[in-house]
Amino acid sequence: MTFKLIINGKTLKGETTTEAVDAATAEKVFKQYFNDNGIDGEWTYDDATKTFTITE
């Protein structure tokens, strides 16, 4: 399955996707992406659209 990440950061904005077997696996991938890029904020997940959103 394809999961999308929408980034609404102070310095970084955009979208990316990842292929994962489930939302929990995608969450781990995206959290690592947050850490690697110094993004910290509030994030949500919409199961209907398989979209994670992080807002700094």
Rank of each mutant, 00 (worst) to 15 (best):
M1T: 12
M1N: 09
M1E: 10
M1G: 08
T2P: 04
T2H: 07
T2D: 04
T2N: 05
T2Y: 08
T2C: 13
F3E: 01
F3S: 01
F3D: 01
F3A: 01
K4Y: 14
K4T: 14
K4M: 06
K4D: 02
K4V: 12
L5I: 06
L5C: 14
L5V: 09
L5K: 01
L5S: 01
I6Y: 04
I6S: 03
I6A: 03
I7L: 07
I7C: 11
N8G: 03
N8P: 02
N8W: 12
N8E: 08
N8D: 08
N8T: 07
N8C: 13
G9Q: 06
G9R: 06
G9W: 13
G9V: 15
G9F: 15
G9M: 15
G9I: 15
G9T: 15
K10M: 11
K10H: 13
K10W: 12
K10F: 13
K10L: 14
K10I: 15
K10Q: 10
T11E: 10
T11N: 13
T11K: 09
T11A: 09
T11Q: 08
L12H: 12
K13I: 11
K13Y: 11
K13R: 11
K13E: 05
K13D: 04
K13W: 12
G14P: 05
G14L: 15
E15I: 12
E15C: 15
E15Q: 09
E15S: 10
T16N: 05
T16G: 08
T17I: 07
T17A: 07
T17K: 07
T17E: 07
T18G: 03
T18N: 03
T18K: 03
T18C: 14
T18Q: 04
E19T: 14
E19M: 14
A20F: 05
A20M: 02
A20K: 02
V21R: 11
V21K: 13
V21P: 14
V21C: 09
V21D: 08
V21M: 11
D22N: 08
D22R: 01
D22E: 03
D22S: 05
A23D: 02
A23S: 08
A23F: 09
A23L: 05
A23K: 13
A23R: 11
A23I: 06
A24D: 07
A24Y: 09
A24Q: 10
A24V: 10
A26L: 02
A26W: 02
A26E: 01
A26G: 01
A26N: 00
A26S: 01
A26Q: 00
A26T: 00
E27I: 10
E27S: 06
E27M: 13
E27C: 14
E27V: 05
E27Q: 08
E27T: 04
K28H: 08
K28T: 08
K28F: 09
K28S: 08
K28G: 06
V29Q: 10
V29H: 11
V29G: 03
V29D: 04
V29I: 14
V29A: 07
F30V: 03
F30C: 03
F30N: 01
F30A: 03
K31Y: 05
K31T: 05
K31I: 10
K31V: 08
K31D: 01
K31G: 03
K31C: 06
Q32R: 11
Q32L: 10
Q32S: 11
Q32N: 08
Q32I: 07
Y33W: 15
Y33E: 04
Y33C: 11
Y33R: 07
Y33S: 04
F34H: 04
F34C: 15
F34K: 12
F34E: 08
F34D: 01
N35F: 13
N35L: 15
N35S: 13
N35D: 13
N35C: 11
D36Q: 11
D36I: 12
D36S: 10
D36N: 11
D36C: 10
N37W: 15
N37Q: 14
N37V: 14
N37K: 14
N37E: 11
N37L: 15
G38C: 12
G38S: 09
G38I: 12
I39Q: 04
I39W: 12
I39Y: 08
I39M: 10
D40F: 14
D40Y: 14
D40P: 07
D40H: 13
D40A: 11
D40M: 13
D40N: 13
G41V: 10
G41E: 03
G41D: 03
G41H: 09
E42S: 08
E42R: 08
E42Q: 10
E42A: 10
E42L: 12
W43T: 03
W43L: 14
W43Y: 05
W43C: 06
W43P: 02
W43E: 01
T44I: 07
T44F: 10
T44E: 08
T44L: 07
T44M: 08
T44G: 05
T44P: 00
Y45Q: 00
Y45F: 05
Y45T: 00
Y45K: 00
Y45N: 00
D46Y: 02
D46V: 03
D46H: 05
D46A: 03
D47G: 06
D47S: 12
A48L: 10
A48V: 10
A48I: 10
A48G: 07
A48N: 09
A48Y: 10
T49H: 04
T49E: 05
T49R: 05
T49I: 05
T49C: 03
T49Q: 04
K50L: 12
K50F: 10
K50A: 05
K50H: 12
T51H: 01
T51M: 02
T51C: 04
T51A: 03
T51S: 04
F52L: 01
F52Q: 00
F52G: 00
F52A: 00
F52T: 00
T53R: 05
T53I: 07
T53W: 06
I54G: 02
I54R: 03
T55K: 04
T55Y: 08
T55R: 05
T55E: 06
T55G: 04
T55F: 07
T55M: 06
E56G: 05
E56Q: 11
E56H: 06
E56W: 13
E56S: 06
E56I: 15
E56T: 10
